[in-house]
Amino acid sequence: MARMILNRFIFMIFAGLLLLTFLFCLFHAIPGDPARLIAGDSAPENLVQSIRVAYGLDQPLMTQYTTYMAKVMTGDFGLSNFSRQPVLQIVGPRLLNTAKLAAWSMLLAMTVSLILGCLSATYWNHPVDRGITAFSLVGICTPIFVTGILAIYLFGVHLRWLPIGGMTTWKHYIMPVATLGLAQAAGFTRMVRACMIDALGRDFVTTARSKGVPEHVIVFKHALRNALLPIITLFGLGLGHTLGGAAVAESIFNWPGLGRLMVDSILTRDLPLTQGCIFFFAMLFILVNLIVDLLYRWADPRMANE
């Protein structure tokens, strides 16, 4: 277990360096002069040249790369082109806000999908199953931005029950978490249902029923435990999708998270801030995969020594 965790952290380091190298090359291939972008279109040429010298943009590309990577290794991701604040100082709180939104959304999605998926499999081909299937299909086919806008209009504007933006109080969490979580729960429910139908058809379930074991014990103790491996994989991939969907939810609900910050930095062409946002998004996704591997070993003890 410890060796696997160590290997994953080493992989994170190499993946992060490779990603930063790719982003550096990509952003330097974008047409336009970064110094002119910082100074403004109407800035005199001498000011643009002084900015170019101050930022080291007059140096050869390989010198710029080695200087940038050396700073990154010390935790210095540069300064934002517009706010003039360190990128790490800007990204840190936003990353925490996105993690909160994604964690609560995934908790809601997992809870709802496990309950509905197990119910749907237990009452397979009954009205309960058909109703849950209809809910899942509607959720899968409805984009997050449509659900979010409808929620804002209904609960924020029409009924005035909930605030429509920000994250000051617990009420601010309800609409973005519900929008993002239920969107993920719709897809999860279908997969949980399929896994549970397969598990409930196994021989050990038939044996347990013949011994008079209560149905809820069979479903939630025996069948669900044996269906956990594909479900854990699904939840791990779903958390990555949740992080991607968080950018949309954050823009709709004015949530001060990393996704919204990345969108804003791309629109303003704040290249150092965009690099920092993409890098930390990727590291968060790799960390999620590590957690999924640990859950695999908890669900299947046979993998503990691999």
Results as ranks from 00 to 15, higher is better:
L61F: 12
Q89F: 06
G40A: 05
F11G: 06
L261H: 08
L95V: 06
A223M: 02
Y65P: 03
Y153W: 14
Q49C: 01
T74R: 15
D198Q: 09
A194E: 00
V157G: 04
V91F: 00
H216L: 11
I10W: 13
H241S: 12
F14V: 14
I149Y: 08
D300H: 02
Y68K: 10
L239K: 11
L261C: 03
L95Y: 10
L200S: 02
R160E: 14
P230M: 11
C118T: 07
G40W: 06
G78M: 02
R269M: 10
L116R: 01
L18A: 11
C141V: 12
M73V: 12
G245L: 05
T274I: 04
P176E: 05
G245E: 15
L37C: 10
L79Y: 12
A39C: 13
L88W: 05
V205P: 08
V128C: 06
G259K: 04
V146Y: 13
C118L: 01
P127Y: 08
S251W: 14
S42G: 02
D76V: 02
L229W: 06
T98H: 01
G165F: 12
L137G: 00
F9A: 12
S105I: 04
Q85G: 10
H241P: 00
L57A: 11
V263M: 13
N226Y: 06
P230Y: 09
Q184M: 15
V128W: 09
L200Y: 02
M283F: 12
H126W: 08
L108N: 12
A282G: 03
S83I: 03
Y123S: 07
A199I: 05
L182A: 01
V213D: 00
F204E: 05
M262C: 11
C141P: 01
P272R: 11
F14L: 14
L243Y: 03
N125I: 01
D293M: 01
T168N: 02
Y173S: 09
L17I: 13
V138I: 14
L19V: 02
L228K: 00
A43T: 02
I115Y: 13
